[in-house]
Structure formats: C-alpha cells, structure tokens
Design a binder for these strands. Structure first.
Length: 216
DNA sequence: ATGAAGATTGCCT
DNA sequence: GGCAATCTTCATG
C-alpha cells in the first residue's frame, strides 16, 4: 500500500527525515525496481534561494506548486534527471524533498542494466548512489514529472519501509547548492554505504574570449 | 533571440 | 582533485 498523501502534506523539512527507510518503486514493461531511501534533501518554497521554486512558478517547476505526494522530475546538466517528492510549504505549497540515494532491494539486474547500458560494471552500493544515478537505476525520466506516488495505480509509488527497523539519522549541508549552503537540510542514514559523498558547489570555468593572455 | 548557469557524473592523472 | 559532456531553463533586450 502506498504512503498516504497526508504523509507528504507537511513541510519538506519534516517529511525528509521520515522518508529515510521508505521504499520507492517503479514498475515498467522491463520489470520492477525498488529502492530503500538512504539520503534525501529538503527544499523549502519561495523562501529558499536554493529551491527551484524560489523565483516563483514556471513551466518547469509547476508540479512543485501542485498537490503533495507527486513526483517533481527535472532535467539538468544536459544529461541527468533528478526526482523530488512534492510536499507542502509556507503558503501551502512548493516545498519538496530531493531523493539523493538509496539501496536497491528489488530488480537489481534491471537497475544494473540501465546504469551500465550493457558495458562496464557497477558495484551494488553505487547503483542508486547519487540523485541522477538513482533516477537512472529506476528508469525515471521527464515522463514521470507529476506522477502521483500515493496512487496504487501509478507506475511510480512510494511505500512505507520496514517499520521495525529504526535508523540513525545524520544531518548536514545540502550538496552542490550555491546558495544557503549553510542550512543543514540534508538527511541520511548514518553509516550507510549507499549514501553519496559530500561535494561542495563547484563553479564551472568559462571559456574566455581571446583566451590567451596578451601580456608577454 | 541570445547568453549564462545549473539540486551531476565519469574519466583522467 | 580537476575538468569535460551536453541541453534545458530562465532573465534580459
């Protein structure tokens, strides 16, 4: 049974740590892949400069302004997808939790096939270690933007994890964000090997016109 | 219409 | 640890 919508009808900062240990599964023609979440990040709405919702509603982030319990999938760096769970925020909407990593608990062969595309090899712990890897392993792309993860009929569903298992949760600054980097809204399962390595925001170098120095 | 940056990853040394 | 790959999105004129 999928997680109830009420679970997501809270602020992302409250939802994020509760998502650790929960399961995200995606059913396709190729089969089912499921992961247990081990690392997430909370993004507030209009007040959070690191959030896509900071500058208001656009075509891309429209799903974030909709009802909670839906997937917000976006494309970035010309090649990667990332997936969020939409929650409520101040003003009623536009907060979300970015899913950064998880452990494969079903469909490992299919996940590995998607990640390697037939060549190379990937350790089990690296299959969904990182937000773009997680999407690739689960086969998530833009067609799932807006998918209702609380619906039994949806191909992408969020399920409750093992209730008996208690996890130790650690917190820290969010990864790769250029603003509000001091706010500890990243949550992960302490000691879990599938949690991604922390990387500070790295500004990209730009090509300088007339590149070589005229001095000499 | 155009320019700049991006919630990343993989491969190189 | 550092940089290339690759394209969508948003702000500005």
């Amino acid at each position: 049974m999928p997680i109830s919508r009420d679970f997501f009808a809270r602020h992302a900062v409250a939802v994020a740590p509760d998502l650790l240990g929960c399961v995200l599964e995606h059913q396709t023609e190729a089969g089912l892949v499921a992961i247990e979440l081990t690392e997430v990040e909370a993004y507030a709405g209009r007040s959070d400069p690191a959030s896509h919702a900071y500058r208001g509603r656009t075509q891309r982030n429209a799903v974030m302004f909709g009802p909670p319990g839906h997937a917000y999938v976006y494309f970035t760096y010309g090649m990667h997808f990332c997936v969020n769970m939409v929650c409520l925020g101040e003003g009623g909407s536009a907060s979300a939790v970015l899913l950064r990593a998880g452990a494969i608990i079903a469909g490992e062969d299919l996940a590995r096939a998607r990640r390697t595309r037939g060549a190379g090899s990937v350790a089990a712990r690296d299959l969904a270690r990182g937000p773009a890897r997680l999407c690739q392993a689960l086969g998530i792309d833009r067609s799932l933007d807006g998918a209702d993860v609380c619906s039994q009929d949806s191909s992408l569903r969020a399920e409750a994890g093992h209730p008996a298992r208690s996890v130790k949760i650690a917190t820290g600054p969010r990864v790769g964000v250029s603003s509000a980097a001091d706010i500890p809204w990243r949550f992960w399962v302490d000691g879990d090997p599938t949690v991604s390595a922390y990387r500070a925001h790295t500004p990209r170098l730009r090509e300088v016109p007339g590149g070589s120095s005229p001095r000499g």
